[in-house]
Design a protein around this nucleic acid. Sequence first.
RNA 1: GCCCCAUUGGAGUAGCGGUUAUCUCGUCAGCCUUUCAAGCUGAAGAACACGGGUUCGAAUCCCGUAUGGGGUACCA
Length: 497
Amino acid sequence: MPEVSSVRVRFAPSPTGTLHLGGARTAIYNWAFARKHGGDFILRIDDTDPERSTPENVQQILDAMTWLGLDWDEGPSLDGSIAGDAGPYFQTQRSSTYQPALEKMIANNAAYRCFCSAGELSAKRDAARLAGGSSGYDRTCRFLSDDEVKTRIDADLPFVWRLKVPEVRTSVIVKDLVRGDIEFPIETIDDLVLMRSDGTPTYNFASTVDDATMGITHIIRGDDHLSNTPKQILIFEALASDDKGGAVPAFAHLSMIYGEDGKKLSKRHGAVGVEEFAEMGFLPDAMLNGLALLGWSLDAETTIITPEMLKAQFSLDRVSKNPARFDIAKLEHINSIYIQEMNTEKFVQAMLPWLEEAGLSSSADVAVRPEWYTELAPLISERIKLMTEVVPMTKFLFVDEIEIDEKARAKALDKDPEVTAAVLAATSSTIEGLDDFSLSSIEAAIKDLPSKLDLKPRVVFQAIRVAISGSLVSPPLFESVALLGKERALERLSSAI
RNA sequence: GCCCCAUUGGAGUAGCGGUUAUCUCGUCAGCCUUUCAAGCUGAAGAACACGGGUUCGAAUCCCGUAUGGGGUACCA
């Protein structure tokens, strides 16, 4: 009998920027966990910060997730439609759910009005801190009598709603799937504000209500939320009807991702947005693989983990507790493996956008001479780490006129102009006589040149290489000549002398 | 100040009381070779932050210290 799983997880980015590496990794773990358990992966946009949230950022986040291959079961879609019926999936559209939630908490005797002004509060906070104790709210308004409350309401004093932290218990224990049980003494938990004086919910309240009403079973998020968790647990408990147990979801807090200097990853470390890595020539699957490995491992050995493997084998108990530093060199290595393992047809398709963008090629050209691309692909795929490298490596094959690199010219051409002239002339005449311009016949023709000219292979071949490609570094020589074609090859040889 | 979390070679990790401390990246050297890669072979590099315990035995358990991080808002 198949086990009916009820796992529901969510990724709730705040659209105050694009999807950065840390957020992407959180999304990946949520997604992989949902897939592994046959549960639902929900995308919720926590856009309650009107100053910094923008529709463009929302779009960017959706695009980045789609690019990574993270499909969600519920949430806003790329085309503007919405999937799922636990919505709305934009926090700004959920305002109607917070008031009833608050009323429920009031009914459960878990919330109270606070009339303290901002000035009073900060003064109290400073005093408490100086005294060396907890910096939480001193609960002045918690013990107001009904009459006192009524007087203040009648006087039209503004007020907020605060959480009434239970006095009877000694601590709140967070059962964390990554870190184990973490105990917070009850006296260190603040009577935090639930509802602001303008009637809007605070983050901790809104987020908890959303998670509760959406039926979230596992909250997997960054460990910057760990200290908020006991407060949220208290809210979860206060929200639950007395007859309903198990309302508190399980938690899993992920360590931050650091930059190479050991500091929290931020823009000053260079690229941190997923879209920037796409532009740099990383492949989505490689990105997913590399990010997943930042704080999680399949076992002691495996480095290459495909999306399919992640979906089938991800587990929270193998998530590492320590913060990982982001190392782009390793990501590049992983990327190069994915590039190498693409089959020819796939690689041609992967190359095309980069060639098109550089104005070198088009899908029409691929359609006209597919076999030419088929020959080119493996030559390139085995020697690049990033897709962006396709352009400099193949440019000489597409353009009419090449620019010869100065250093290359000095080293391979100008050192001994007479020898160079002889080599290139000999090459030209050899090639010229070729009726069959196939790789094998070119190879047969050019291979003996060094011994015929009584020169070192290195001297001969590097001169030819620079003449036809303009660079000391190129795909294999014979192949390059074949791909260039007879006419162009001859042109380059003569113009280089 | 107070609360919470973390600490294994340069980086990511394995390890869950007994191992020559795992694997990957990176670094270095050699092979291959017409270049660059790839590939192959090998090497250097960690007494597991430090100090105390517990134990016959600790990277693994407990307590401190140090360092780093997070929280402590009518931010998210």
